[in-house]
Design a protein around this nucleic acid. Sequence first.
DNA 1: TAGATATTTAGACAATTATCTAAATTATAT
DNA 2: ATATAATTTAGATAATTGTCTAAATATCTA
Lengths: 87, 87
Amino acid sequence: MTLNITLRALSDPTRRKILELLKKQDLAAGELGKDFDITLPSLSHHLSVLKQANLVVSQRQGQEIIYSLNLSVFEEIAEKLYKFFKK
Amino acid sequence: MTLNITLRALSDPTRRKILELLKKQDLAAGELGKDFDITLPSLSHHLSVLKQANLVVSQRQGQEIIYSLNLSVFEEIAEKLYKFFKK
DNA sequence: TAGATATTTAGACAATTATCTAAATTATAT
DNA sequence: ATATAATTTAGATAATTGTCTAAATATCTA
């Protein structure tokens, strides 16, 4: 995963809010939707961007699709950003 | 400086390259320009975004305007990002 | 002061991205 | 099988952002 794709994914406030919510607990798309003023298709788009950036993973559970943080990648990103900011 | 403004500023590859170049040495706008295929006004726009995000500072020296990293803010950002990624 | 150099500002245009509605997909339940 | 529920995909539109050219500003030098 390139730093580019990661930072693009992180550059949107809605997506960062999604990540914040997923820090607390795994959530289905619909559950997440309750915290936003956008339509579900819009939310779905943001989730797709986060998935492409490998920041979240999803897993179907019956009718729902449960999203959760991809913790190992979070660590990897932290390291990349640390290197970037280390002069 | 909000994380929002910072991440927006960092989300562009051109701007990240500017920061990488400034890690090595302070540079005038025109000097920076040699490393990019965009016009100086476009570069100037990117520099302005980085300044608004407080990632760089500038200082006139005769005809030139010298850009340099705002190192203290770099530290602050590293901390914010660390907190963001810390579950 | 006039001309040259370095950079920015203004304003227009093009590319990207976020959003919406409508329709499609997948699973459950009757 | 049909209807309902959860979510995504498709396609259109609007907002944002990056880029350009032309003009303005600031500094230096002859």
